[in-house]
Design a protein around this nucleic acid. Structure first.
Length: 201
DNA sequence: TGAATGATGCACT
DNA sequence: GTGCATCATTCAC
């Protein structure tokens, strides 16, 4: 859930990935404590937002007790409320990117395609979750478990194990076969808001 | 319909 | 200097 002056955005998390500590070669914690990842080793329930590929903000929830670095990446959300606001922020993010890239035609097609994007695909990917919720790295450190927090987790429903699919994490081939192959990506089976991304070889 | 590619800022070595 | 926990577009077929 995110609250701000213009209203409330809410959705159900339908896909996540787990990232461990020093030994996980795919985790930001593999470098040991750094300026960027330092909240990962702090108390759990805190937001860790990082910029990837120079343009996408990815939201993580710090896990494990204070002192042990770990986090869960929110990969996809099914939008439930504040959908127009999500759409607006998606457009804004795309517009900013295109302006930097300097392609007017690209912007036109980008906004046209976004308008054709169904509601349930507005946050179907880690970068898209960040864009739809208007989250950037400044949100790192936010207490996601405080009911008064403008960005927070709220209790959901218990899902039977059988409804959860597990598979390898996306885009972590660099970590080596052992770590890249671990089935630490979890998603609701067959859910239409799960990211369709396939590892690019 | 699917694979390749470019964009872009910054953490890290 | 290198490469990334991504996505949209372009170019084959």
């Amino acid at each position: 859930v995110r609250d701000d002056a213009t209203g409330r955005r809410a959705g159900t998390i339908v896909e996540v990935e787990a990232y461990g500590g020093r030994d996980d070669r795919a985790s930001h914690a593999r470098f040991g404590p750094t300026v960027r990842n330092r909240v990962m080793a702090g108390p759990p329930g805190i937001a860790y937002v990082y910029l990837v590929y120079g343009m996408y903000d990815c939201l993580n929830v710090v896990c494990e007790p204070d002192g042990r670095p770990a986090a869960v990446l929110i990969r996809a959300v099914e939008p439930l409320a504040g959908i127009e606001r999500m759409r607006n922020d998606r457009t804004r993010a795309a517009t900013t990117r295109r302006r930097v890239a300097g392609s007017g035609a690209g912007l036109a097609t980008a906004t046209t395609r976004l308008a054709a994007t169904p509601d349930h695909r507005l946050a179907s990917g880690p970068g898209l979750v960040g864009a739809a919720y208007g989250i950037d790295t400044g949100w790192t450190g936010t207490d996601l478990c405080d009911p008064r927090s403008p960005l927070r987790l709220e209790p959901g429903t218990i899902v039977p194990d059988g409804d959860i699919a597990a598979g390898p994490r996306v885009g972590v081939a660099y970590a080596g076969e052992d770590w890249a192959s671990r089935p630490w990506r979890f998603a609701l089976v067959g859910h239409r808001s799960v990211s369709g991304r396939v590892p690019a070889r």
